[in-house]
Design a protein around this nucleic acid. Structure first.
Lengths: 162, 162
DNA sequence: ATATTATTGTTCCATTTGGAACAATGTTGC
DNA sequence: GCAACATTGTTCCAAATGGAACAATAATAT
């Protein structure tokens, strides 16, 4: 009889890569980080190939598609990316007609960004890709578990000082 | 009476950035991604400043500190980063004495990586930074909630085909 | 009022990144 | 046995990235 006490070993080399999730000193951080990668990286690759949008560019589109009006700084805070990256993404997306820019009359430093119908259309094409990936991964949970996860994530996110 | 029906508005501009977490079409993906950023980005910045290690370099150290023996390909799979990035990180870390390399006698293509005592020592200095950040964020949960979160994350991660 | 400090968005530039092609080794199918 | 294909790790190079300095505007202090 063969040894199948191991949890998983896709390498066929005796190294069980999944074991690291149980062993390490910051299991939640590592698992959340890994899950985030697993959720978004394949989709970003797809978006890059099909629409030639970088991660930062898509994140900008995503934020604006849900928020009606944002400054570049807002987007930087929401996405954790540096301001200059957002700035570049804004110019690229402006050029391609996915968003508009209007100076804020109340604060001359700020510029308010809004998504255009073309941007919304693009976003609508992309969202299902994320939804599909999310469904595939979260499908491992029962309805109750999923609800509980939502609740916990929501609480955690709200606890974060943006 | 003032309008305080809003959930949170740190901008003072009437834009509630946290609202995006409730509104978007893939709330779990976005929340997990945001949490991952929030957990690791500040720590990676610190590691960069204090030890001049890039994210990829530290991830390599982290994987090896928990796994005794890995190939570059293993690390690429675990971290979601391209093989060439790992390759670079390996050479950098070899040069600095944080790991060793030995050809696999059973497969001439592979090279087995192991952490050195110096690497372990470095890792031990860094781990508390992640632990602290994790504690700060997860502190928002009760003990029960935290346990449930662990359980759900574990299930999700195991469902991922590495 | 005015000096000081802070914030926003941008540009510059050195560094990092990751796709593609490659050589070396393994595996599979016939 | 050997041809076709797959996998590992590396190098090359174009593109993305992010820190730092900057100009413009705003907020704060005196």
């Amino acid at each position: 009889m063969s040894d199948d006490t191991e949890t998983s070993d896709d390498t066929g080399t005796g190294r069980d890569l999944m074991a690291i999730f149980e062993r390490n000193e910051m299991p939640d951080t590592f698992r959340i980080s890994f899950l985030a990668n697993s959720l978004v990286l394949p989709v970003y690759d797809e978006i890059k190939r099909e629409y030639d949008l970088s991660r930062g560019e898509y994140l900008l589109l995503f934020c604006l598609s849900n928020m009606t009006e944002l400054t570049a700084q807002d987007v930087a805070q929401m996405t954790g990316r540096p301001r200059n990256s957002i700035s570049r993404a804004v110019h690229r997306m402006l050029r391609d007609g996915y968003l508009t820019r209007s100076p804020d009359s109340e604060d001359g430093r700020q510029v308010l960004l809004r998504i255009t119908p073309a941007g919304q259309k693009l976003h609508k094409q992309i969202v299902p890709k994320f939804a599909e990936r999310q469904g595939a991964l979260l499908g491992a949970l029962t309805g109750d578990e999923r609800q509980k996860l939502d609740q916990l994530l929501s609480k955690l996110v709200l606890a974060t000082t943006l």
